Simulated assay, not measured.
Amino acid sequence: MAVEVKELLEAGVHFGHLTRKWDPNMAPYVYMERNGIHIINLYKTAAKIEEAGEALSKIAASGRKILFVATKKQAKDIVAEKAASINMPYITERWPGGMLTNFITIRKAVKKMATIDRMKKDGTFNSLSKKERLQVDRQRAKLEKNLGSITDMTRLPAALFIVDIKREHIAIAEAQKLNIPIFAMVDTNSDPRQVDYVIPANDDASKSIDKVLSHVTAAISGGLAERKAEKDVPKTDEDAPKTEKDTPKVDKDAPKATKEAKKEVVKDEEE
């Protein structure tokens, strides 16, 4: 799906921060300054969205997960909805320290949720005292709030998609330490050098976030569809198992016929 500059303009993707708050490394993506605010070059934004979308599509087609991260108020609901629609994990509450660098511990916490759920199913939960049940319920609710969206993420993600890299600096640091590619919406007050795939855009307005994420998730959805299509392709005739019709029949009487033929040859020679 081609990215139209007009639709980005209508969503307010071009609005940057105040000029006094800018990061000079964002200069290549700034078009101009108007009323003390930097205006982002939307032609570059459109090109970067397409570039990031292509890379994310390939990751999705390979069957690996992309972790979405956005804990700011105006982005969290949008990110949760978009990521859930393509069955990708996301973090929209506080970033759990060590989420990537100490992934084994995080997985243990996720397994604890599953253990509590089993206790409720097999009746063990009912055998606890009222106070213990209350404590377990509180623990389950806390785990669900912070980690419920990553229950299906059994291994480290192949990439991160971040909204507002200044706010999610801990996630950035952990991904960099593990060499996990970072895709991000980067506003004029942030340093784009921290990101592998920069999408220069307004990361404060919900309309802007929604518009960029719509294109990104559409690209990922395309990659997932491609993977599904490859799996559904029927096997070729060469790969198909041979049937009885394809297998040449063995003549059971062949040995017997050969013996009789030999006898006739010997008889002719004697005569």
Rank of each mutant, 00 (worst) to 15 (best):
W22T: 02
T45W: 02
T151E: 14
L213C: 09
T45S: 10
A173T: 13
L128E: 09
I180M: 05
K166I: 07
K44S: 04
P181F: 03
I162W: 08
E270S: 01
D204N: 14
K6P: 02
D251Y: 03
N146F: 15
K121Y: 00
A109S: 05
T247Y: 10
D77Y: 09
Q194R: 08
K120N: 03
L100A: 04
T188S: 12
V212Q: 07
I78G: 03
S85R: 12
E226K: 14
K228T: 11
K6A: 13
E230H: 04
P192R: 08
D268N: 04
E230I: 03
L128K: 12
V30L: 11
I170H: 11
P24Y: 07
L100P: 03
D164K: 09
M26C: 01
K82G: 00
S127P: 00
V195E: 10
T243A: 06
L100G: 02
T45Y: 04
I199H: 13
H17R: 14
S208F: 01
V212C: 04
R107T: 05
K111R: 11
T71A: 13
A80L: 09
A240K: 15
I162T: 11
A219F: 13
G97F: 07
P255V: 02
I40A: 00
A83C: 03
I172P: 11
Q194G: 12
K249M: 03
A52Y: 01
K235G: 12
I66H: 10
T188W: 03
E230Q: 12
E244C: 12
